[in-house]
Simulated assay, not measured.
Amino acid sequence: MQDVATSAVTAAPERVAVKKTVLMCRPEHFTVSYRINPWMHPEDPTDTSLAVRQWEELYRIYRDLGFQVELIDPIPGLPDMVYSANGGFTLSGLAYGARFQYDERGPEGPAYMDWFRAHGFEVAEPVSVNEGEGDFLLVGDRILAGTGFRSDAGSHDELRRLFGREVVTLTLVDPSFYHLDTAIAVLDTDSRDGQGNIAYLPKAFDARSRAIIDELYPDAVIVNDEDAAVLGLNSFSDNRHVVIASRAVGFEASLRERGYVPIGVDLSELLLGGGGVKCCTLELRR
C-alpha cells in the first residue's frame, strides 16, 4: 500500500508557477443591501471591517506569491465593486468592458473601463450584457464562456470577433452558481499542449455543456457539492499555487494529489455577497 501511495506522489507532475498581474478593489463600501443572487440576504447584518480584513489577507497572499497587484478605487454606493473579476476581460492589451445584468451594478462597467483606459488598455465597449471574467475564463488558448444567468450568448460572439480565439459556450443551470467562475476553476493556463486544465462542478451545467467539458478536459478535477457550496471553485491559480476557500478541504486534497500547492483563505464575509477568491481577482493581460 505504501508503494502505491509513493508511486502516486511520484507521478504528480512538477508544477511551475507563472507570475500574474491582477486588479483588485478594496471592499471599503461592502455590504449586502439588495438581492441579485441566492447568496445575498439583505436582512442579515454584514461586517464591512471584517470583509476588509479578509480581503487584505488575500491581497497579502498574492503579494507573497510575487504577483503584481493593481488597485481600483472603490466608489461609494457600489458595494459589489470588490468583485473585480466582473469588471471586464483582458487579453493582449485589449479590455472588453462589462455591461451588467442588474441596474444595481450598472455603474461598475464604466468605472472599470475608465480604469482600463487610464492604465494603457485599448477598451472595447460591450454591446451585449456580460459580466467579465465572472463568465469568461481563459484556459490555455481557448476562452470558456458562460451563459444562463448573467452574460448573454451574444457577448460570446463579441469575444470571438475581438480576440480571434476559440470561444466555447457553456450553459449554467443552477442559480447558486450563477457565474462560470463559481462552477469552474482554471488550474493551468500555459500547459504544453495549449489546452490547460480545470476543476468543475458537473451539476452546475446542462447536459450539452457537461459533454463538452468532459471531451475537452478528460483529466479535470471533479469537485464535490460541499466544497462547491463554499465557493471552493471560485479560486485563482498561477499554475502551481491555487488560492482557494479554506473550507474546501476535499478540493484541497485533490489539488495536492495533482501536484498543486493549495493555499486556503477565509473570505466568509464576502461570501455573503456571493463572491470568493476569483470574484475578487481580475487578471490583467497586457
Rank of each mutant, 00 (worst) to 15 (best):
T169E: 08
I72P: 02
G97S: 14
P107H: 05
R192V: 11
T147L: 01
P202I: 10
R142V: 10
S128E: 15
S176H: 10
A185C: 15
L180M: 08
S191R: 11
D188L: 15
L144K: 03
D141N: 14
V173N: 07
E158V: 10
E133M: 11
F116D: 14
G97N: 12
G93A: 02
G148Y: 07
A111V: 09
P79V: 03
F116P: 09
G164Q: 08
L137C: 03
V173F: 04
L162E: 14
T189M: 10
E70Y: 14
A111Q: 14
D181G: 12
D193F: 12
D114Y: 04
S128P: 01
R105V: 01
R192K: 12
G134T: 06
G164V: 08
D188Y: 03
L71C: 08
R165T: 05
I184S: 06
L94V: 15
H119I: 04
A204G: 04
M113L: 06
E104I: 07
D152E: 15
T182K: 01
D141K: 10
V129A: 09
P202Y: 04
R192A: 15
G87Y: 05
N86W: 04
I72T: 09
S84N: 05
G120T: 11
L187E: 00
G97E: 09
H156D: 04
M81E: 14
P107C: 05
R192Q: 10
E158D: 15
P175M: 04
G88T: 06
S92N: 15
V168E: 00
R165I: 02
F121N: 04
D157Q: 13
A118M: 10
L78Y: 06
T189K: 09
T147A: 10
L71M: 12
G106N: 13
G140R: 07
R192M: 11
D157F: 03
R105F: 03
A185L: 05
I184R: 07
Y83M: 00
P79L: 05
L144T: 03
T189A: 13
F136V: 14
L201P: 01
Y200K: 13
D152S: 15
N130Y: 11
N86F: 06
L91T: 07
L91H: 14
I184L: 06
R105E: 01
